[in-house]
């Protein structure tokens, strides 16, 4: 048995498996882009895959041939002819790669410049992204909205992102919409994204940032422009009316225990250290990672570090009933 048999086998298996898993929900796949940026990037990926596969096949073809044809056999008493080299052959395998790389280099450079150009125009949406250990804040300066963990964008619109961090390095990555850009202390980076279709796109922090780096998730929620408009209206004029005793009790507890860090638009809660909780009930996730269910809200409040080790959110001294009350209050933030 020779090595490349195995390679062939592995390649086939891998391709098969790829096909199989294609049926699954793959909402973080680079190979399934949902916007122009990721599409441009995928086209470079595919171009390089084609060129490189060609080189691989040629090299492995030669290896296969050589291993079969020139294996040592019985009765070979004379050593083989000692060849120093061959200028023509060596020139060939210098020049052909140069040409192939040039073919790859041209779109690489043009795409790099295309992605670097900041989109302008009246219908461009500006968003300030601020990352902290281990959550994301999204501020819409033109709309006066601040939210966290879930970035709402209208479909078919270019969104300009201004990226900053409050502590360590992070990296903003939504595989189906765009490759990543780092958020670095002391710098402001920019990138742009656009979603061509509505949907929820999983985002990840892609630069190691501490104990909970692996769960520093966020979502990009792309909606058609009318729904987006409706969302912005709700965020500008949120309904903060606790319904029921538990929620009223929750509001008091929130004021005592949570408001120093969290703010909610339309209330007196103006804490700026933690995520803004305006419209919390509409969120898909709690803390960016858990499904937004009543149980998960309580789980998160009762011991945040169990979900996100190293989080700045402390374990608040509340009993189970009080936590339920706070959860009830949060459920009413629409």
């Amino acid at each position: 048995m020779r090595p490349k048999h195995r390679i062939g086998l592995l390649l086939t298996t891998a391709v098969l498996l790829l096909g199989l898993t294609g049926c699954q929900r793959a909402d973080m796949s680079v190979l399934d882009p949902a916007g122009p940026v990721a599409k441009m990037q995928l086209s470079i990926i595919m171009l390089s895959v084609y060129i490189m596969s060609g080189i691989f096949v040629v090299a492995m073809g030669i290896l296969l041939y050589v291993l079969i044809r020139y294996r040592s056999r019985r009765g070979q008493n004379q050593p083989p002819k000692q060849v120093e080299g061959n200028n023509v052959l060596e020139a060939i395998w210098t020049i052909i790669p140069v040409i192939l790389l040039a073919i790859l280099a041209v779109p690489t450079v043009t795409t790099a410049f295309a992605l670097d150009a900041k989109p302008t125009g009246s219908n461009v949406l500006n968003v300030k992204v601020k990352a902290s250990q281990f959550w994301w804040q999204f501020e819409y300066p033109d709309l006066g909205i601040v939210t966290a963990q879930e970035l709402h964008i209208p479909t078919g619109t270019k969104v300009n992102l201004q990226l900053e961090t409050t502590d360590v390095m992070h990296s903003f990555w939504v595989p189906r919409l765009a490759g990543k850009t780092d958020l670095i202390p002391g710098r402001t980076n920019t990138m742009w994204i656009q979603a061509d279709q509505p949907g929820e796109f999983q985002g990840k922090c892609a630069e190691y940032c501490g104990p909970s780096h692996g769960v520093m998730d966020f979502l990009v929620v792309a909606e058609d422009p009318r729904q987006f408009q409706a969302w912005t209206d709700r965020m500008k004029h949120p309904q903060v009316q606790p319904a029921g005793d538990a929620a009223v009790e929750g509001e008091k507890l929130f004021a005592q225990n949570c408001a120093s860090c969290h703010s909610v638009a339309g209330t007196n809660f103006k804490g700026a250290l933690g995520p803004n909780l305006t419209g919390f009930a509409d969120r898909i996730k709690v803390a960016g990672v858990l499904e937004n269910t009543d149980e998960n809200v309580r789980r998160w409040i009762s011991d945040p570090a169990a979900v996100k080790p190293g989080t700045k959110m402390p374990k608040v001294p509340l009993n189970e009933q009080q936590i339920s009350a706070v959860a009830a209050f949060l459920r009413d933030l629409k």
Binding site: A38, Q41, L42, T108, P175, G179, E207
Partner: peptide
């Protein structure tokens, strides 16, 4: 090495 593709692969 193709930078725009690397934005996806990176990290």
């Amino acid at each position: 090495s193709a930078a725009p593709a690397d934005y996806q692969y990176h990290g």
